[in-house]
Design a binder for these strands. Structure first.
Length: 667
RNA sequence: GCCGACUUGGCGCAAUUGGUAGCGCACCGCUCUUGUAAAGCGGGGGUUGUGGGUUCGAGUCCCAUAGUCGGCUCCA
């Protein structure tokens, strides 16, 4: 028997024929192989010249294999319980997996529990995952009862069309995985699948859980039938599963909708309508401080402040093109009917008025209100512009997806020559301001046009120039740059700033869009130095995106522990007993005279109760005073995290508070 | 928009098979008041999202509608 020369984890080895991954790796944490760059089952029989690496269960590839194998077990469990269920696809996803099924009755929570029991049984049975190569025609016969799998076979090789189904029918050979009973050798279940899988079901272990079920369109297309999707999570160990569930719990505690109610910041009265928020006094303070600071910074950076109405006749959005592309996303028009006199003469023309979904056309009209010269440019118009968008009922979500929102919107009119310079300064401005609000970890996304999609208007040449400019500017920041093909607005490409919050989630924040299209549609001009008329370029940018959304993101980022400069109540004075109220009131008036938001809690509650109340309210500074403090003209700090500093001289305490506010420090 | 679940006093929750709506917190009143996350007693407040229907009788069943939640699709 001739020896084969292979490389194992970078080291050359000679092995006998029919050697498999099982022979090469003893560690049970190796669950699959990477052979010449391709993932394979451990049962793969090595060939001469192969370069083989072991895939650790806890590696990203290993976790995907674990989760995808768990998805197969789920599918088997579903079909064991309901043989009529037809299989969709079942890929691994972040933290888990899902599998789609065509079933008559949607899954209930009780169904999920039953399915977990059945999965346990399958896992304990230690079924082997056995790869079998097949071909289109054989597979079609074998899977004649699985219409969705048949459809995928038809798409094989067309990676774009397969989409999430790549786990089933990726490039290369068509394969079926048989689940084999290790005792009898009998195939108990099978699924069209590219693999690889764990060697057997037992290795899935018990660190998995079915999380929820929901409907999902077949192959992600709204025009297709909805299948029932079951989501699960799976981990190498019970501890990791527990940690994951705790992370979900932590995220739920930070949910801005929950904190918004707890801290009395905002609400969505049913009487007003879905996606329409009211800000309560405490939320109002945070919002006003956010806005005030933004105004100040815009003023310092050469922006002009403009104002525009909330409604407009339809022609404005016809010219801009928004009505043609986004009429569905706009509130329907207010129709003013034509009035005709008794002779049939039109006395008053009929008109459609729309709530504005965008501010740009209004700013354009300001631009057009006079002849512009190159000396006027760049012209930077800023507005807290309130817009209304008819978001589909199913997508409205807290403050992050609403139907009425206020954008911190600006439109910059620049010459082609200074466009790049202006973009560079805008992005610096944006990042600096976001940092002031406490977000510090960013990356950029460059959204570009999708070739051939008619949604994108304007010439190829213009798109290339705009995209090239944005990309140079983005690269110059030194931040990580992620491409987003097809993500551009219909009128131009954009850079968006993505921020990571305190628990590592990313949020799309600011967008900066370059637009050659609207200036053309509105026939914008300026007189160049040589006297000729030229077309300016527009830059659209919103820094918060929408104030509502930014408010929501900051709430989750801080988990309601807003830094003192934003906190609705900055200082709460808590006397040990009634007798010390006056002393605290004295300190409070001094703070108040310096603009600090402060109260003294002289309610009937015990001091312990007051500490509890103001801690729950996330008040950054609690000032406690009793005899000891008063006689030393001092005060004791207590902070939201329970820590304390006692006997601080009043003057120092005041300085400390003022400086934290002034410097936007977190405490 | 689609699929599913949910909707009980300000908030969080209870109400066996359809049979007179309860609790905690909060609120109001009184009493109490010294050191770091809930003092005690008493009181008021809901007809169960809204509109229909079934029934002798509905918070509990049916239909519609609004809103919320979880997904899918979408996000200028």
């Amino acid at each position: 028997m001739s020896d084969l020369k292979i490389t194992v984890d970078g080291t050359s080895r000679e092995v006998v024929a029919d050697t498999t991954g099982f022979n090469l790796f003893e560690s049970r944490s190796i669950v699959a192989l990477r052979v010449n760059g391709e993932l394979r089952d451990l049962a793969y029989v090595v060939a001469d010249g192969d370069s083989v690496e072991g895939v650790e269960l806890s590696s990203p590839d290993g976790l995907n294999i674990l989760r995808h194998s768990a998805a197969h077990v789920l599918a088997q469990a579903v079909q064991n319980i309901n043989p009529e269920a037809k299989l969709g696809i079942g890929p691994p996803i972040k933290d888990g997996f899902y599998y789609d099924f065509d079933v008559v009755e949607p899954f209930t929570p009780e169904d999920l529990r039953k399915l977990e029991k059945e999965m346990d049984r399958i896992i304990r049975a230690g079924q082997r995952f056995v790869r079998r190569v097949t071909n289109d025609s054989d597979a079609r016969v074998e899977l004649s009862n699985e219409p969705y799998k048949l459809e995928l076979i038809g798409l094989k090789g067309n990676t774009d069309a397969v989409g999430d189904g790549a786990a089933e029918v990726g490039a290369g050979e068509l394969t079926i995985y048989d689940n084999v009973n290790p005792q009898t050798g009998e195939t108990v279940w099978k699924d069209l699948c590219r693999g690889p899988h764990l060697p057997n079901t037992r290795m899935i272990g018990n660190a998995y859980s079915l999380m929820r079920s929901a409907a999902a369109y077949w192959r992600g297309n709204e025009a297709n039938k909805q299948l029932q999707r079951v989501y699960g999570t799976a981990w190498p160990s019970k501890d990791e599963l527990k940690a994951h569930l705790e992370r979900l719990e932590e995220a739920a505690k930070r949910d801005h909708r929950r904190i918004g109610a707890e801290l009395d910041l905002f609400s969505f009265p049913e009487e007003i309508g879905s996606g329409l928020a009211v800000f309560h006094p405490k939320g109002g303070i945070i919002r006003r401080v956010m806005e005030d600071y933004s105004r100040k910074r815009h003023e310092e950076n050469g922006y002009d402040f403009v104002y525009s109405p909330h409604i407009t006749k339809s022609n404005l959005f016809e010219t801009s093109g928004h009505l043609a592309w986004y009429a569905d996303g706009m509130f329907p028009p207010m129709k003013l009917d034509e009035e005709v006199d008794e002779n049939g003469i039109v006395r008053k023309q009929g008109q459609d008025y729309y709530l504005k979904p965008m501010n740009c056309p209004f700013h354009i009209l300001v631009y057009k209100s006079q002849s512009r010269s190159y000396r006027d440019l760049p012209l930077r118009m800023f507005e807290f512009g309130t817009v209304y968008r008819y978001e589909k009922s199913g997508v409205v979500h807290g403050l992050t997806r609403v139907r009425g929102l206020t954008q911190d919107d600006a439109h910059l009119f620049v010459t082609q020559e200074n466009m790049e310079e202006e973009l560079t300064s805008v992005i610096g401005f944006v990042l600096g301001l976001l940092r002031d609000y406490g977000l510090t970890d960013f990356y950029l996304e460059l959204s570009t046009r999708e070739e051939g999609n008619p949604k994108f208007v304007g010439s190829d040449e213009i798109w290339e120039r705009a995209t090239g400019t944005l990309s140079r500017v983005a690269e110059a920041t030194g931040l990580e740059l992620v491409p987003d093909p097809g993500g551009a607005a219909f009128y131009g490409p954009k850079i968006s700033v993505q921020a990571r919050d305190a628990i590592g989630r990313t949020w799309q924040m600011s967008t900066i869009q370059l637009d050659f299209n609207l200036p053309e549609r509105f026939d914008l001009e300026y007189a160049a130095a040589d006297g000729s008329l030229k077309r300016p370029v527009m830059i659209h940018r919103a820094l918060f995106g929408s104030i509502e959304r930014f408010f929501g993101v900051l709430t989750e980022h801080y988990a309601g522990h807003f830094p003192p400069w934003l906190a609705p109540l900055q200082v709460a004075g808590i006397p040990i007993a009634d007798e010390y109220s006056d002393y605290l009131h004295e300190i409070a008036s001094e703070l108040r005279s310096k603009g600090v938001r402060v109260i003294v809690d002289d309610s009937d509650d015990r001091m312990q109760k007051k500490i509890r109340n103001h801690t729950k309210d996330r008040v950054p500074f609690m000032l406690i005073a009793g005899e000891e403090d008063r006689s030393n003209r001092a005060v004791s700090f207590r902070f939201r995290d329970g820590s304390q500093e006692n006997g601080i001289p009043v003057e120092d305490a005041i300085k400390r508070i003022l400086s934290a506010i002034e410097n936007k420090e977190q405490v």
